[in-house]
């Protein structure tokens, strides 16, 4: 009875607002779903390998890619793919040579500066910059949904191929090397994997906030479960919940979707963290 009441209210609230009847909102939902799921898959390895800084930097490089594409008047996808994949490869090469801190930071600044220049040259100030950095759901077109789906499928495929050796070399490096795992190849392929995810996240939640979608849900899930499959399932559910709710709130308030997405993801993490803390305290007290 009570449940029905809630559903009814939700229904009444959704219908007149046009949430599910507007075409671009459907696009946003489909894209958001693909992004949340693939980000979870790749985020699993980002957290496991401890490369949060890389996940933080690659989308910013992607920003320069889109801005450049606007100037050259080529599709944004081309700019994103070129910059993210190249940026990922450069970063994985540089980090192998040590000194990764300074070089990564400066390369990143170079890419961001280039993005700024492209924006200025393309006479696309303010609005475009904001959309690229913090995401925009209004502008997602039908073909863009198709592209996201295609990139999402490629990412998932590559992830499945890489899964076993990547896990092996991450948790038992010496053993894996002795067994013939090719570390350099895997490092590069992993960078491409992160790059591909950023290709999808930048248009939806923006260059600055895609990072939280990548690491947040997995970090939250691994507080609760230590089993690979469970972590993935739980993180996927958390990511989906965050992006769906964020889209709903963004649509309703007109506020940026990236703000809601990051806030919900961080809230999820905090709630679970506090929950776990209370539980261990209680267990210790008994």
């Amino acid at each position: 009875m009570h449940m029905m009441g809630v559903l009814d209210t939700l229904h009444l609230w959704l219908l007149p607002s046009g949430l599910l009847t507007t075409l671009y909102m459907w696009h946003a939902y489909v894209c958001g779903t693909i992004v949340a799921l693939t980000a979870t898959l790749v985020g699993y390895f980002v957290v496991l390998r401890g490369v949060a800084f890389m996940a933080h930097s690659l989308p910013k490089i992607g920003f320069a890619g889109v801005a450049g594409a606007t100037v050259l008047q080529v599709p944004p996808l081309v700019g994103l793919l070129t910059f993210n994949l190249l940026g990922g490869l450069v970063m994985s090469t540089l980090s192998r040579r040590g000194r990764r801190d300074v070089v990564t930071a400066l390369t990143l600044v170079l890419a961001l500066g280039a993005g700024e220049l492209f924006l200025t040259l393309g006479q696309a100030y303010g609005e475009t910059a904001y959309a690229l950095l913090f995401g925009q759901i209004v502008g997602i077109s039908g073909p863009q949904v198709g592209q996201t789906l295609a990139v999402g499928l490629v990412t998932t495929g590559l992830w499945m191929i890489l899964y076993r050796p990547l896990l092996f070399v991450t948790v038992a490096r010496d053993q894996a090397l002795a067994r013939g795992v090719r570390e350099r190849l895997l490092d590069n392929l992993f960078a491409i994997l992160v790059g591909l995810v950023c290709v999808m996240t930048v248009p939806v939640v923006g260059a600055l906030l895609g990072f939280s979608l990548l690491i947040g849900p997995v970090a939250t899930a691994s507080l609760v479960t230590r089993r690979g499959v469970h972590t993935l399932l739980l993180a996927g559910a958390l990511g989906l919940a965050a992006i769906w709710l964020a889209l709903l709130l963004a649509y309703d308030s007109g506020w940026p979707v990236g703000f809601f997405a990051t806030t919900i993801i961080v809230l999820e993490y905090k709630v679970v963290y506090i929950g776990r803390w209370v539980k261990t305290r209680r267990a210790l007290a008994i």
Binding site: Y163, R164, P165, L167, A172, A176, R179, G180
Partner: peptide
């Protein structure tokens, strides 16, 4: 962790 020793080298899930 142990299962990785069995077939961790191979590609795929």
């Amino acid at each position: 962790f142990v299962a990785l020793g069995l077939d961790g080298v191979r590609w795929g899930v």
